[in-house]
Design a protein around this nucleic acid. Sequence first.
DNA 1: TGATTTCTTCACAGAGAGTTCACATTAGCC
DNA 2: GGCTAATGTGAACTCTCTGTGAAGAAATCA
Lengths: 225, 225
Amino acid sequence: MTRILITDDEAKIRELIVKYARHEGFDTDEAENGMEAVEKCEREHFDLVIMDIMMPELDGFSAVKEIRKTHPDLPCIMLSALGEEYDRIHGFDVGVDDYVVKPFSSKELMMRIHAILKRTQRAAASGDQFVLKGLLIDYSARTVTIDGERIQLSPKEYELLVYLVRNAGIALTREQLLSTVWGYDFFGDDRTLDTHIKLLRRNLKDYASYIVTLRGVGYRFEKAD
Amino acid sequence: MTRILITDDEAKIRELIVKYARHEGFDTDEAENGMEAVEKCEREHFDLVIMDIMMPELDGFSAVKEIRKTHPDLPCIMLSALGEEYDRIHGFDVGVDDYVVKPFSSKELMMRIHAILKRTQRAAASGDQFVLKGLLIDYSARTVTIDGERIQLSPKEYELLVYLVRNAGIALTREQLLSTVWGYDFFGDDRTLDTHIKLLRRNLKDYASYIVTLRGVGYRFEKAD
DNA sequence: TGATTTCTTCACAGAGAGTTCACATTAGCC
DNA sequence: GGCTAATGTGAACTCTCTGTGAAGAAATCA
């Protein structure tokens, strides 16, 4: 059963979405503001979150940002009032999957929900673990283990590793890595990426050599040896 | 370089999108209607297609449907006029990746382009290969394998090989090779190209003879023997 | 708030890659 | 077969890119 959390301060809008979502066979829960949404996400499992932007207590973006800390892959659809253009862009930045402009048609919203679920379920189906010999990444626990021993990675190192590993066997350009792991608008030093690769390699010990340098291009995580 | 095909019957809209897309570093081409878009997609390579729905000759949906026959993974963004709700839903059905409602802001369109490219990069990158007997080039991994054994090529050697192979069976002049692989602004020594060809041949071992010298012209990669 | 961790920047070193050059070799032409 | 112009070759040189440690800045935590 697919569970959707509907977050909006207007009860009428929540009810409307609930009605249609149930009709599509989804299980629903509601939250009145960002704070409540964050709390519910910490306690319960959801497959998708619908989130209004303008809300009392905690706005939609801050809420998504907060939720993403513990659930980095939980799909989010934002609801934005017409004209909130800045919000839209900011939304994609935070890592929102889609947004719908109010007033929206319920059919449209349902279509977008289905599209996103289809897209993310594929990724989720591939298991929430990555294993390569003695290297184990547990995505849900956000931990990395080498030969049975838990290793400590900084947030950036972990994200970098995950992106590399999820694209194992594929050459990733420096731009791709920077724009994905650091964000679309990173304009920092050229050595930032190298430095994190260095730290990551150091922590990966024997598996460091799986991160291959592609001179003039970027890096690639080897699928096998 | 990311290439985007912009399809709309209104020249003004095309120009607007072209302007912003170029600004974002994309390479662009235009089509006036669905028919032209289909033809261009068959002849040239694009990374993304932007497509208006209402057009003379061939409408957007039919065009996407047609394009998908030969390019099932080519991302498409539809442009729909306000109120064409049915179109939207139908669009997702055809397998459109996203749509933007007119009148749209250019920033919003660019954000959606970036979002989709990011999403499809992974899928698009994998499974792209060239095979000739025991010679295998994996474009996504950026690796070359000979008889099952991975060989190491320098960046220039790899690019040179890729360009030759992508134009297998076609005579390429020295000027073409230099301006494509080195860049149109290369004014170096005559021996530079030879030297790289030499190194490439050495690395290709038994397959070296596939790079044929065309005296007074350039080189050609043999399609078969 | 202060302490600690993490991230970014910077200067420099080193390795790898690219270019140039002198000369050898080859192919085509008479 | 010799001549000429073009390509092939090895080695030296130069350059560009990545790796690295250290230090300062920023974020996080207590």
